[in-house]
């Protein structure tokens, strides 16, 4: 394996890193929208209004059973024709992954809410609380702490899934890697480096999430039943 030279290596890295920034941008935006939408879907799914329950369940199931790449193509190629809007790669990516991740986050919320002891619902009901008050004051505060590991895991999955945006020409890390590999005819070095970059970033996030989890676990020792 010939050595491309240190300077060239640094130049190449300099080319790749803005791609990483774009990857993080898409992931961040998708999380920003995906989590609240996921909460709304979960509440709709658990709520008392039957038509809403069915609709939310359908949305969640549909976006969990269809592959993200199909969704991305649909939002990028198909939707613009349907509703007559300009769809940039970035917007299509954010829309796709917001909705896609929200379906998974909805399940995390649902699992977290369901994991809270039924006695908590009983006690709140007995002092006259409505469902809404119970969720807001009693259930969700307890559930959130339990859902952090699942959230972290889902977020990291999202980070990995956003590599797909390279297929609609959004200049994320994967896209730039493809470009660089084609230009330099050095796929082995480029793709190995990219794998390493992803690995490092994801490992860092995993460790970070683990640390946050541990701190919260310590703080909530007083919350144990």
């Amino acid at each position: 394996m010939s050595d491309p030279g240190l300077l060239r290596l640094i130049a190449d890295l300099g080319f790749l890193l803005p791609g990483l920034l774009n990857t993080l941008k898409v992931t961040g935006m998708a999380l920003l929208f995906g989590v609240p939408i996921g909460l709304l879907l979960a509440l709709g799914r658990l709520g008392g209004i039957r038509p809403l329950r069915v609709v939310c369940a359908f949305v969640i199931e549909f976006f969990r059973t269809t592959p993200p790449l199909v969704q991305l193509f649909w939002f990028f190629f198909a939707l613009p024709i349907l509703i007559n809007v300009e769809m940039t790669p970035f917007i299509a990516s954010v829309v796709t992954f917001s909705i896609q991740s929200s379906a998974f986050f909805a399940e995390v919320f649902r699992g977290g809410i369901n994991s809270i002891d039924k006695g908590q619902w009983e006690a709140s009901k007995a002092i006259g609380m409505t469902r809404g008050q119970t969720l807001r004051r009693i259930i969700l505060p307890q559930a959130v702490a339990r859902m952090i590991p699942a959230f972290a895991e889902r977020s990291i999955e999202l980070l990995k899934t956003t590599t797909l945006v390279s297929t609609v020409s959004f200049a994320d890390l994967m896209f730039r890697a493809n470009d660089l590999a084609q230009r330099t005819f050095r796929p082995l070095e480029v793709y190995s480096a990219v794998a390493l970059i992803y690995f490092t970033v994801i490992l860092l996030f995993s460790q970070g999430a683990g640390a946050v989890e541990r701190r919260l676990a310590r703080g909530s020792d007083t919350m144990a039943r």
Partner: peptide
């Protein structure tokens, strides 16, 4: 009606076998 029952439950107190205190 749900609202009527909520109001009613403020006038009747209940204590459970498993306490059901709010741990947080």
């Amino acid at each position: 009606r749900g609202a009527e029952l909520c109001k009613l439950r403020t006038r009747i107190g209940m204590v459970f076998q498993h306490f059901n205190l709010f741990p947080h």
